[in-house]
């Protein structure tokens, strides 16, 4: 399965199991979403459970909160993460705090999906990675799958979770495990073991990272597209790195991270989002707190530059395998 098919399948499984699961968003109903992640759901479950929304992101999230408070489990789509800002007030001031401010009287078990990241020549309004804007908010869980197996299992967990979950889908991974070598042919998911997706219901728990490669020289912390970029860099540098796919940014699997860094004594953090106050800063702080006496080199961050995502210069912006490779070499030379 591709990542798109896995996400569609997770919706299908949950809508089939639970009448309370409703799905809506811009172009999500009849057409099945601009990336086709909800294709066929309206035809199968009817217009009252999968429908097109007006173009109003704060309306999409605001009504989803009302439905969730009523007892439904809405799973809504924001067409691109870059369009989520009008809904940010609803996410931050409302969904994230409803349980706390009502002392558990009302809750908002909803999932908000959105495609993130660049690599498709989408420029500044179709390429952003705003995960740190969610992890900074207390009361939101933030998930970033990197493959079809995890995407389905994590999305089912997100929909079943009793708190609001932000589900970020790296759009460059929708059709294949992209490793940053943009000048090479696209690799389809069919060739990758993690495209084997079981039928029916299964979960990948929120808050658990996955060790994608075991190694002893350096720990690479990555998520989403950057998992494959890290794999490419590690193999090209011939370094025995341990690559951890975080999968969930909040709650974060700090045990897996700390155990790995204590073993390898070095750490490189990779993300596509801009650097300053990015999630890498949080990771760096956590590693420093947990592993200070084990570290043999400064923690490195490889990130997008602190500029808007450019169109023509996309590959100068994207933190590809070469930049990750240079960082790996630097920490190994200390």
């Amino acid at each position: 399965m591709t990542m798109i098919e896995a996400i569609r399948d997770a919706h299908d499984v949950m809508m089939g199991r639970d009448d309370n699961v409703v799905v809506f968003g811009e172009d999500v109903g009849y057409f099945g979403g601009v990336f086709r992640c909800t294709k066929g759901l309206q035809q199968k479950y009817g217009r009252a459970r999968c429908f097109d929304a007006p173009i109003n992101e704060s309306g999409i999230v605001g009504t989803a909160i009302g439905m969730a408070a009523y007892g439904l489990r809405p799973c809504v789509e924001i067409q691109f993460a870059d369009y989520m800002y009008p809904a940010y007030d609803q996410m931050v001031s409302e969904a994230a705090r409803l349980r706390h401010r009502s002392a558990g009287d009302f809750t908002a078990p909803l999932t908000i999906r959105m495609p993130t990241g660049g690599g498709i020549f989408g420029a500044q309004t179709h390429s952003q990675s705003p995960e740190a804007l969610f992890t900074h908010v207390c009361g939101l869980k933030t998930v970033v799958p990197s493959n079809p197996y995890d995407a389905k299992g994590l999305l089912i967990s997100a929909i079943e979770d009793d708190d609001p979950v932000i589900f970020l889908e790296p759009k460059r991974l929708y059709n294949g495990p992209f490793d940053g070598h943009h000048d090479r042919p696209v690799v389809p998911w069919s060739a990758h073991p993690l495209s084997e997706v079981p039928e029916g219901h299964y979960t990948v728990p929120l808050g658990s990272a996955s060790v994608r490669r075991t190694g002893s020289d350096v720990t690479v912390l990555a998520y989403g597209t950057m998992v494959y970029v890290a794999e490419a860099a590690v193999s090209e540098q011939g370094i025995d790195a341990e690559i951890i796919d975080l999968r969930t940014l909040l709650p974060l699997d700090t045990d897996t991270i700390a155990a790995s860094v204590k073993k390898t004594r070095r750490c490189v953090i990779v993300h596509e989002a801009t650097r300053t106050s990015g999630f890498g800063a949080e990771l760096s702080a956590i590693v420093q707190e947990a592993c200070f006496y084990h570290l043999e080199a400064p923690i490195e961050r490889v990130t997008g530059w602190d500029t808007p995502y450019p169109h023509a210069q996309e590959w100068d912006y994207f933190p590809g395998p070469e930049r990750v490779g240079r960082a790996l070499k630097r920490v190994m030379e200390v």
């Binding site: 811009e26 172009d27 109903g29 009849y30 057409f31 601009v34 097109d52 929304a53 007006p54 173009i55």
Partner: peptide, 11 residues
């Protein structure tokens, strides 16, 4: 509006 007919916004 892409695939969405004007009735969804007009209500």
């Amino acid at each position: 509006a892409i695939s969405t007919f004007q009735g969804i916004a007009r209500g």
